[in-house]
Design a protein around this nucleic acid. Structure first.
Length: 315
DNA sequence: ACCAAAAGCCGCCAAC
DNA sequence: AAGTTGGCGGCTTTTG
């Protein structure tokens, strides 16, 4: 049985701990025999008030044998609580000594700042909540921040983006330990209809934009992927000049118009490939001009060719 | 794998 | 006075 230890603090985000806890315990229940034991720890132990006000019970770090930890994950949370946790000598000292001895360790969301400050991310590739990636990069120059990733694995160091990405990360851990089949069942049990890969973008434009000013335009883009979607065309559709459109669209969506269109086309192509379409057909319905174009976009955005993607994802 | 042409991006700034 | 607009041009990225 592998010991999974989740590290929390006053003001930590409940889901950052609850998500991983449920993934590992669910995997344990559904497997042939219990594979994981989950413990939630904090500096002093006892009740922890999370950022949402829901309190959870924790063990004190002193009660946990740091020699026997398999997986150690630090939660993220509200700024003040996180800063206090980082400066907490007891917690810092314990994690610093425990993490290197664990088989793997990591963080969810802003927990990456704690790991980084404690020197545990030096020389590593890592990520954090999308709104904080530039800050992480600025303060911790020895860490290669990957802002687009849902989660990043660099050897034994795993870091994930905003809250629910932690669930995807833990599923990937379970998959490594227990295989794909069990992991798929766990994901299904948790009603995660789509498992997301680490290199997927952190937030859903669909959700983010529903209320936005360009919701209608975005809907139009999605339904007209095969047409020419140049800036001119989109600006015209939005009733703005090119320059203003570009400015506002980027402010609203966090992506430039061309990048956004490319994302949409990539997603469409992915769905096609996953549905078993040929490369040419996938390219065509996604509005990419050729299968070479398709390959370029895959390489650029996913770091792999369409064929490799099929191997990994449709295999 | 390469390259010229095209497209996209974005700081700048005068004009609202 | 402060904020927005949109044309220009140079620089980078993408395309065929």
């Amino acid at each position: 049985v592998r010991n999974v230890v989740l590290v929390g603090f006053q003001g930590a985000q409940l889901l950052d701990m609850a998500g991983p806890a449920d993934v590992f315990s669910m995997a344990s229940q559904m497997g042939a025999q219990p594979a994981f034991k989950v413990q939630i720890v904090s500096s002093a132990g006892g009740l922890l008030e999370t950022s949402s006000g829901v309190a959870i019970n924790t063990l004190a770090v002193s009660e946990v044998d740091s020699q026997k930890i398999d997986t150690l994950i630090v939660a993220g949370g509200a700024r003040d609580g996180l800063v206090a946790a980082i400066e907490d000598e007891v917690l810092a000292g314990w994690v610093r000594s425990a993490a290197p001895k664990a088989r793997r360790f990591g963080s969810v969301c802003s927990g990456a700042f704690a790991l980084a400050q404690w020197g545990l991310l030096d020389g590593c590739r890592a990520t954090t909540h999308w709104s904080a990636t530039s800050t992480l990069r600025r303060y911790y120059v020895n860490t290669q921040v990957e802002p687009e990733a849902l989660f990043v694995r660099d050897g034994r160091v795993w870091t994930s983006g905003g809250v629910t990405a932690g669930i995807d990360m833990c599923l990937a851990m379970v998959e490594e330990d227990q295989g794909r089949e069990l992991t798929a069942r766990v994901a299904r049990q948790l009603l995660l209809s789509v498992r997301r890969l680490g290199n997927q973008s952190q937030y859903s434009r669909t959700l983010q934009l529903q209320a936005g000013r360009y919701a209608e335009l975005i809907d139009w883009i999605r339904t007209h992927l095969t047409e020419t979607l140049s800036i001119e065309r989109l600006a015209e559709h939005a009733g703005q000049s090119n320059r203003s459109f570009q400015r506002h669209f980027e402010a609203q969506t966090g992506e430039t118009p061309a990048a956004f269109v490319e994302s949409q086309r990539l997603n469409a192509a992915r769905e096609q490939l996953e549905a078993g379409a040929s490369l040419k057909a996938a390219a065509r319905t996604a509005g990419l001009t050729s299968d070479e174009q398709l390959a370029r976009v895959f390489k650029r955005r996913l770091g792999m060719s369409p064929l490799q993607y099929q191997m990994v994802h449709c295999g």
